[in-house]
């Protein structure tokens, strides 16, 4: 049940991110058309930037689910199956640990940004905290997806173990 709702949220966010790209495109067009007409609207390119940041962090959980991360698989490929799975798991555990710390740091940062009403410099003082909390949400789901993938990595190793034990 929980697994299914996580999966659902991940897919929905990925879908949303795609449509957000059209929003970014639309905002930039609005910016240039309004300037060409001599009635520029303030803060449009800044808003487009915020949407872009949201795309990055809301898209991460899906990228993790699809295992679309960039990495060097040269050594993993060369190692024997079992060892390769163990190294893979060890790396995944490091990824979980790192991202938990990073998540914590971003939560503190977002909270501070809310408290100090941090705003960007520019034609309109747009506050930054909403997008920072979007980052928090995206990173949280990202960490959850990593944990799910770690679970899979553990199962791979156990399954690799099982027949060996049976043989003996």
């Amino acid at each position: 049940m929980i697994a299914r709702s996580i999966d659902f949220a991940t897919n929905i966010l990925a879908e949303l991110c795609g449509w957000f790209l059209l929003v970014v495109m639309g905002l930039i067009i609005v910016d240039l058309v309004s300037r060409a007409l001599g009635t520029p609207i303030y803060g449009v390119s800044e808003s487009a930037m915020f949407v872009m940041i949201a795309i990055v962090y809301l898209g991460l959980p899906y990228a993790e689910k699809m295992k679309a991360h960039v990495r060097v698989e040269l050594v993993l490929d060369a190692l024997p199956g079992r060892l390769s799975a163990i190294v893979d798991l060890a790396m995944y555990l490091l990824v979980v640990g790192t991202m938990l710390v990073v998540f914590y740091a971003v939560v503190i940062n977002a909270w501070g940004s809310y408290g100090s009403r941090q705003a960007i410099a520019g034609p309109t003082p747009l506050v930054v905290w909403p997008v920072k909390f979007v980052m928090v949400a995206g990173l949280l789901l990202y960490v959850v997806q990593i944990v799910i993938n770690v679970g899979q990595a553990v199962r791979t190793i156990i399954r690799a173990d099982a027949p060996t034990a049976g043989d003996a």
Binding site: V24, A48, M49, M52, I53, V102, A105, N109, I120
Partner: peptide, 22 residues
């Protein structure tokens, strides 16, 4: 923690970067 928390945002918070996803 402070530097990483801020870098996660500021590294990509540049309006000219929107050209990349487009």
């Amino acid at each position: 923690l402070s530097l990483i928390g801020e870098t996660m945002y500021s590294a990509i918070a540049t309006p000219t970067y929107t050209v990349l996803p487009l």
